[in-house]
Design a protein around this nucleic acid. Structure first.
Lengths: 206, 206, 206, 206
DNA sequence: GGTTAAACGAGACGGTACGTCTGGTCTTGTA
DNA sequence: TACAAGACCAGACGTACCGTCTCGTTTAACC
């Protein structure tokens, strides 16, 4: 589905039940045994499926993991995701980042998300799919919120929203992935404040 | 024999030539065949070394990769690393970040660094070693440069230097690792400017 | 539906073209790729036929091979096969055995016949069918020729014709199947002479 | 051992226990589940051995079966096998052939021997090994017995002993392998008598 | 300076998983 | 309803590595 690699099988005949069983099994196994021990054989066995059924539809283990995330995120699909907009940008961002911190710290999701992140790091095709299907919509939601603040005069007019988003979420993801420091709510708060104000001294008190 | 979990090998008898051959082979193989196909067997064969010699001294493939990086970075050791300090913080940061961008884009180092980054992401012990031995010294150098600017009144007095460093380098690393966008010199410039000024509008010009 | 073990397909609707295509494909593949690599899938693909069509009509790979031979031998059917009868038994037998040797040495037929022989060795049902449909008629022809000689006083009156036939053709088949020695015209001649005269010394010169 | 196929492994380091376990497992499985269902995986599992240990030392499934037979026959090795020699050739041959019939009818050995026979039929290299290591010594014993009779004037002077042996044992093996008729002691007797006397009428009474 | 114990190269071993291939069954149009 | 097409579950194939375990063979420290 994500990426074709050989004579495309006839998708019309595809068995939806098997597809779901595979993705569910993959995600569950990631939680239970971790990324290092995840195997196609294991997924197939857990899903009650022949190995070939996995190889037929996915080009790599990473693609399976990716689709597993896609399936999860599609439960709440239809409407695009949106960040809260109370008018108070700092408060809204703080709330969202604290939630992100909580999710990243949730042992339930830690392993699977690391698996996805590192598969993406090694597989450009997967990275492209990730940017388009999973990260893209989220990033747009973030940018919408910032644009709204920008229109309200709360952000610099010439602000590069791409950079802005990465300056807020980048440090968080980095600290999580590389474990370069504790990932706490306070840290999230700090990041928001510092990003909004910048490193330079503000002429008037902040 | 202290609190080691197994009979500690006698480091005095260790053959330095084999150690270097292994680390060199590991790094070279990473460049040539990539992380996914890197195997202990392959490293041993390339290094002309028995497998046991690897297993004797390193607990995991990630640890070998890590030491390979350590060996490289130790060529220029003795003096701690330092960032340029011309007095012009923005210029200095821009220069450093552009160099970083160039390095991350260098195909020679791309694969090995990704390998290290993802091994760290999955192995907390390795992450700790990384923070202490490789990233730590670098981070301190970065903080020293920022502290110097802070003392010169170019940065906010109450700035959290940890956060500041991550706000500058985090977006870069993230964009590289996740391939979420092009990694160019312009991007580096943007990040520096935006980080220094913050997202909010500045009362006076610029 | 008689005593069949499963829902008998309606033979009336059977497509003759598919049947022939399957048997031809099976035989050709045996020649080309050999018995070890012969697969139902391969036969179906070569015949342009669905796998199910094979499974519907044949219980095993051996049965397909068997029918392939049957089809070949049915080209010359109608009249039962017969051995030459010039009155000179030894000459007739020698001629027939030399022809058999030539056929067994023909690389075109070697592989398929070995396949049939070994399938029969492992499958009693198939062996029964072979004895009845393929080997039976031939054996009767052989016995007819021997009986004719017997009536002419050239063979012992109390000769067991079953044993006689096997004593002439058995050594040949054995040597072919087990490759226990070179299979030449001279060998055929030797077998005929020795079988006719027996191992014991003949009172008068032979 | 039987046949090398690639960079020869270091036979000195070979583990004898594993070799025996593999051959024993192979033979036992042949008896229990039959040739068609015999798999390398199954042998390895039963022997408590890694698959690679089989692939390292044997080029094919047939070679394993062959060596299993070789191991069995080597229990009684040292002295070469010999046929009984009471002076009465017909009686001796009858006894031996009856014993052969009994063995071929023993369900314990039927499957394994068929497996060996058909592997040989499809693999010339294996056939050569069989002729040399297993069948050869036996055939020589048979020929020794016939030669003894020949010296005693009980067999024709110009008898080709190769042909003679095949004329006695060939029919038996053929009937067994192809199931072309019942394999009984009476049949064995018939074959001996007919082979000794030949098909032609004997001038004087028997 | 001969002894000895550890590290070494080599590589066989019991295993796990790979990605492919085939066996048989089942399903979905088409004729 | 037989057929071609081919997806499906199942599991064996032969290969690649895993991490452990001998093997001799250096090699360095201690006698």
């Amino acid at each position: 589905m994500t990426t074709q690699h050989r004579a495309t099988p006839n998708a019309a005949r595809r068995k939806e039940a098997s597809r779901r069983a595979i993705l569910t099994a993959a995600f569950d196994l990631l939680q239970e045994i971790g990324y290092a021990k995840l195997s196609i054989e294991g997924i197939a066995a857990r899903a009650g499926v022949g190995k070939q059924t996995i190889y037929r539809w996915w080009p790599s283990k990473g693609a399976v993991i990716f689709d597993a995330f896609l399936m999860l995120s599609e439960g709440s699909e239809g409407e695009p995701p949106a960040l809260p907009d109370t008018g108070d940008l700092e408060a809204d961002l703080t709330a969202v980042l604290r939630a992100t911190v909580a999710e990243l710290n949730d042992p339930q999701y830690d392993q699977p998300m690391r698996a996805l992140a590192t598969e993406i790091a090694h597989d450009p095709e997967l990275a492209a799919a990730y940017v388009e299907r999973l990260d893209g919509p989220l990033k747009e939601a973030k940018q919408r919120r910032l644009r709204s603040a920008q229109r309200a005069g709360q952000l610099a007019e010439d602000l590069n929203l791409d950079v802005a988003v990465e300056m807020i979420w980048g440090p968080l993801l980095n600290r999580w992935l590389q474990r370069s420091g504790p990932l706490t709510a306070e840290y999230a708060d700090d990041v928001v404040t510092t990003a909004l104000n910048g490193l330079r001294p503000r002429p008037s008190g902040r």
